[in-house]
């Protein structure tokens, strides 16, 4: 069994570390401190709410959500759900949310694949592969994401020729009019956003994976070799990676949430995500605070969804041990 290093997400570990803590203050003192802290927090929230109320009254507009049912009156460049400009703002926002879900969902899968491959490759015995993995991580992590997205969209995707170029025996077809992957047609905006987010998050995931693998004692590699798993890839897959997983998962969860949040840069490359839709909505209705609240809630929902799924995965992995 590997030595359990930093692993804040796994609850059984944190319980174990709590037991190892030095004795804390006496119970009444800890209750008092916690009570005080709670009161302070409540006061802060109360202050913010009353401030909001006062400001809204001063500008002559109370908090209202009546605009949600009014017709949106703008076009969306792509939508999974049926959508017409005559539909309500609420529906337009939902369409935008589903568009966000779509790019985040695919991005999670793709960036995990890229990250695991790049993270594992940094342990390869092949020098070229190792250096490539390091180079990729270093380059991608040091360039702002917005710049990368603009590069992918304006330079790579819009720079493609207008006649489709077919790759990988018809699995991938690229042109500046659209992308076709496994028979699925995507817009170039979606393609550029997905590519940018995947490679960016993939680099961070590669580091998380590398950290997880490093946390497995060297002895485990040697043990695998002594069991006859001479092949490095096999040793990694069957012995090392399963042991590294509990250290990888919590870090992975925060990278996934980062990906979800970064997806709001979609507007820079013309993709109609929830942020782009709410931007137009706020401009047209003038309801900035309500628009923000909707945006906040949808991201809270998205992030809770992701962290819920990761918790489930975490528990499954821990149970298997």
């Amino acid at each position: 069994m590997p030595v359990s290093t930093s692993n804040p997400g796994a609850d059984h570990v944190s319980r174990r570390t709590t037991r190892n803590l030095p004795p804390g203050p006496t119970p009444w003192r800890s209750w008092l401190l916690q009570g005080l802290f709670g009161l302070l927090l409540l006061a802060l929230i109360g202050l913010l709410l009353s401030n909001l109320q006062v400001n809204l009254l001063r500008t002559g507009q109370g908090l209202g959500f009546g605009w949600l049912v009014q017709p949106a009156g703008f076009e969306l460049s792509e939508h999974w759900l049926p959508y017409l400009p005559g539909d309500s703002y609420a529906w337009a926002l939902l369409v935008g949310f589903v568009n966000s879900l779509r790019v985040v969902g695919l991005g999670l899968v793709a960036s995990t694949l890229v990250g695991v491959v790049a993270g594992s490759a940094s342990f390869s015995t092949n020098l070229l592969l190792r250096q490539l993995a390091f180079g990729y991580v270093a380059m991608v992590r040091n360039v702002p994401l917005l710049l990368q997205l603009l590069f992918w969209y304006f330079v790579v995707f819009l720079g493609l020729s207008s006649t489709p170029q077919v790759w990988l025996g018809g699995l991938l077809s690229l042109s500046n009019q659209g992308v076709e992957v496994l028979g699925q047609r995507w817009s170039v905006e979606f393609g550029a956003l997905l590519a940018g987010l995947t490679l960016f998050t993939g680099a961070y995931i590669a580091e998380v994976v590398r950290g997880g693998i490093t946390s497995v004692p060297r002895g485990q590699w040697e043990a695998a070799r002594s069991l006859g798993l001479g092949d490095n890839v096999k040793a990694l897959r069957l012995v090392v990676l399963p042991q590294a997983l509990p250290a990888i998962l919590p870090g992975l969860a925060s990278q996934y949430i980062n990906l979800a949040k970064n997806s709001t840069l979609a507007i820079a490359v013309g993709y109609a995500d929830i942020y782009a839709v709410s931007d137009t909505t706020i401009t047209q209705t003038g309801r900035a605070i309500e628009g923000f609240l909707v945006l906040l809630l949808s991201f809270l929902l998205l992030d809770l969804l992701i962290s819920g799924l990761m918790q489930l995965l975490n528990r499954m992995v821990l149970r298997r041990r």
């Binding site: 076009e75 460049s77 013309g270 782009a276 931007d279």
Partner: peptide, 8 residues
């Protein structure tokens, strides 16, 4: 028609 929206 199809509208493509950008921020800048």
């Amino acid at each position: 028609y199809n509208a493509l929206k950008f921020q800048e």
